[in-house]
Amino acid sequence: MQRSLSSIIIKVTQIMPNYTRGELANNTATMNQMRNNLYHFLRYLMSKGVTNQQILVRLQRMGSNIAKTILEEREFTGATFEDKIVSIYSEMFNSKISITENSSQFVIEDKKCSLCKYKRENLSVAPCEVITSFVEEILIRLGYTVNKSHVSKSIALGDISCIHTYDLKERDN
């Protein structure tokens, strides 16, 4: 009886499609395993002789592509630039950040970066380069002109927090 019922359930759900990206965008996942996977992915790249600069380029490409996918499903709003940045970090990474403005440069400190929980040995490129390029892509789509974004400090590289810097050419608000 139980087997028949479960078979019926499966048959019914097979008519239903898989998750849509819209549904995924409105749900959460635990980052622990994926964070580890990203680290081992970087180790693989290093083992294949990919240089640090090339690794950086790949991570930036990844972050930018992720942003393009996310932006197809959701928006990031806020009255000010700071509000928007806080919204991005909070909604995507569950991070509570602090922001320091220095002329047109914005320095974001994240003490609990979702991609950099532990110090990693033999690593020269911060995993959260994915995040800075991700955020940069979103900022560009929101109408900001970003000269450069980069990771100045990273927990994975032995620092006490992750520092992400965004150089804006001009502020639009």
């Binding site: 965008a25 996942a29 635990t30 294949k48 990844m62 995507m92």
Partner: peptide, 28 residues
């Protein structure tokens, strides 16, 4: 316990990061 020991993030970010890693591996 998983809820408070784990670090949550957006599920689409999670799956998109997975996709991007896969793409880079195919590229390499």
């Amino acid at each position: 316990t998983g809820k408070f020991f784990g670090r949550t993030t957006n599920l689409l970010f999670f799956t998109s990061l997975y996709r991007e890693m896969y793409k880079e591996l195919v590229d390499i």
